[in-house]
Structure formats: C-alpha cells, structure tokens
Amino acid sequence: MSCEELQEQYGAYALGTLDRSESGELREHLETNCANCVPGVRKALSLVTVLSGGVELKDPPKRLRKRVLALVNPVVVKGNAWQLGWSLAALLAIMLLAVAIPAKKQAEDTARLEQALSVLNDPAAKDVSFGTAEKPARGRVFVSPTKGVVFIAANLPKLDKGRAFELWTIPANGKPVPQGTFQAEADATAVYVRQGALEQPVAVAVSVEPEGGSAQPTTTPFIVSKIGS
C-alpha cells in the first residue's frame, strides 16, 4: 500500500480498532520511520489520547497512591500488605517481616527483596495472575528471562510433613524445568524468588513434591498459568 492508502488507517490504528491482519502493514511501515506516516499517526494518537481527557473523573481510593509509590520505594509503606495488592504485597510482606525479626534473617529478606525487585523492574518481564473460584490458591508470577522468577501466592493448600511446593517453568518444548522448592508461611502465603537466567517459558506450574524436590512433577500441578507472548 502507498502512504496515501495507509493514511486512511491512521485513525483506526491509533484507536486500536484495526484488525490484526490489517494493522501489520502500517505497523511495519511505521518502523521505517516514514516521514509522512509517522507524523500522521502521531496526530491520530494525539486525538485519541485527548479523548481520554473527556472521561468522567472518579476519585481513586487513597491507598492507591501508596501502592504506586511502593513500586519504587517499598520501605515507606507500612500496613497490611495483603490489602495493598498483588505484585506489591509480596515485597511488602518481606519488608514487614524485616521489622520484627533477627538481623541475620533481616539481611536475607532484604536480599530477597532486592532480587525480587530486579525481576519486577526488568522491562522484559512477563507476569500472569492465577486463582479462580474453583482453584482458591491465588497470586501472581513474574518471569524475566534474564533475571529470574518471582512467585507470590495466598491461600496455598496445607502440606503434609516432608512435602514442599515445587515451582516449574515450562518452555515451548513442554518439558517442565524445576525452579526450586519452597514452603508457605503460617498464613498460607508464600513469596518465592528464584534468581538467574532461564529459557522463556510458555507457562509456569506449581506441584506438591517431596521436600528435596523432584526432577519432574510427580503430582498433578495445582497451579498452571500460561504466560502471554
């Protein structure tokens, strides 16, 4: 298509309403930095964004400000971590623990927080939530191919003695890769951080295994979440 023909699509593209089959050509064309189309699409995006300014204003709850600020400065927030939301809750839980526990454990937790933040702050990190009415274990997992995995959950099932949870990443070939074992806290929550590069998974899973961990899942995973591409 010529620039003139593509021009017809600027508005629908900016609005996000072009079908995928249609938008590909314009998108590729924009990547060539076309001197006609890039400013044209900018103008269209500008119009679409200005439309947002017409939305009826609603006041967010006060806690939202704390949640947003805690993303960059978790230490400033105190309070019930689980009320504050998913991605953040874990980090806060670690911080709150750190207040009341011995120095050695505190140092471990601080290190864990830093590891978790390195995953969350990776622009390439993908994340997915899990948990439904039928599957009460709920939470969120973050995967960065270069930094590692952060797994946060609540409502985890009770384990028998000698058993542990094992986290798996499942790459495109379908063979689960073990990412280590962990236990839940007394309140059935867990924050698990596994640092290090890994093959980009298409899904993550958690199963119940013997305490030392297994090379492959020996029970049916009770959490399986697909990771978006």
Partner: peptide
C-alpha cells in the same frame, strides 16, 4: 487499581 499500578510501573521502567 491493579492496572493503575502497572501503568505507573511501566512508565517508570
């Protein structure tokens, strides 16, 4: 609320 949090994290990143 969750999505506002994600939005600001994305801008930050």
């Amino acid at each position: 609320e969750d999505l506002v949090q994600e939005t600001f994290l994305r801008v930050w990143n």
